[in-house]
Amino acid sequence: HEITLHINGRRVKLRFRDEKAAEILKEAAKKGLDEEELKKLAEELWR
């Protein structure tokens, strides 16, 4: 699955395995994680 989040006016595509991962990524984006941090988090969730 993929999700596209808008971060600092940019579109960031993240891959994720399940809905739980999608929710975690959305929450992290709301908390203000930047693009690099979100990509790292997405990679961690993928494993």
Rank of each mutant, 00 (worst) to 15 (best):
L45M: 09
E36Q: 12
E35W: 11
E37Y: 10
E2C: 13
E27T: 09
L41F: 06
K30G: 11
K30A: 14
N8L: 05
L14F: 08
E44H: 11
K31I: 09
I7S: 04
I24D: 04
L45Q: 03
E36W: 13
L25V: 06
A28G: 08
T4F: 08
R10H: 10
A22N: 04
W46G: 02
E36F: 13
E2N: 07
L14P: 00
E44I: 12
H6P: 04
F16K: 03
E2I: 14
E37N: 12
K31L: 12
V12D: 00
H6D: 14
K30L: 13
H1N: 14
E23N: 13
E43I: 08
L25W: 06
L38T: 02
A28D: 01
R11Y: 15
L33D: 05
E2Q: 07
A22R: 15
K40A: 14
R17A: 07
G32M: 07
E37V: 08
W46M: 04
H1Q: 12
R47M: 13
D34L: 10
L14V: 06
K40V: 09
E44L: 14
I3R: 02
K13R: 14
A28T: 03
T4P: 01
R47Y: 14
R47T: 13
L5T: 01
K31Q: 13
E2H: 13
L33Y: 14
H1L: 11
I24K: 09
K39D: 04
D34G: 13
R11F: 15
K40H: 11
F16D: 00
H1Y: 15
R15V: 05
L14G: 00
A42T: 03
K31N: 14
N8T: 03
E2V: 14
E27I: 09
V12Y: 03
I24Q: 09
A22T: 04
K31C: 10
G9P: 00
K20H: 10
I7D: 01
K30C: 14
R11K: 14
E27N: 11
R47S: 11
D18C: 05
I24A: 10
L38H: 00
E37D: 12
K20L: 10
A29C: 09
E23F: 09
R17F: 08
K39P: 01
E36H: 14
E35D: 06
L38K: 00
K26H: 08
N8E: 07
L38Y: 02
E43N: 09
T4R: 04
R15I: 06
I7V: 14
E35P: 09
E2F: 15
T4D: 07
E43G: 07
G9M: 02
L33K: 08
R15G: 01
A29S: 07
E2K: 05
E36A: 11
K31F: 12
R17H: 07
H6F: 11
L5N: 00
W46A: 02
F16M: 05
T4L: 08
E35K: 05
V12T: 03
W46R: 02
F16T: 13
R10D: 03
L41W: 04
G32E: 04
E27F: 06
L38W: 03
L45H: 02
K26W: 11
K13G: 03
E35S: 07
E19W: 14
A21D: 15
E27W: 07
K30I: 12
I24H: 06
L41S: 01
E37M: 13
H6G: 05
K13C: 10
F16N: 02
D34P: 13
L5A: 02
E19P: 13
W46F: 06
L33G: 08
A28S: 07
K40R: 13
W46N: 03
K40Q: 14
A42L: 04
H1P: 05
A22Y: 10
I3P: 01
I7L: 08
E35G: 08
A22V: 10
N8S: 06
A21V: 05
A22Q: 08
E43L: 09
E43H: 07
K26I: 13
E37G: 15
E2D: 06
V12R: 01
K30Y: 10
G32H: 05
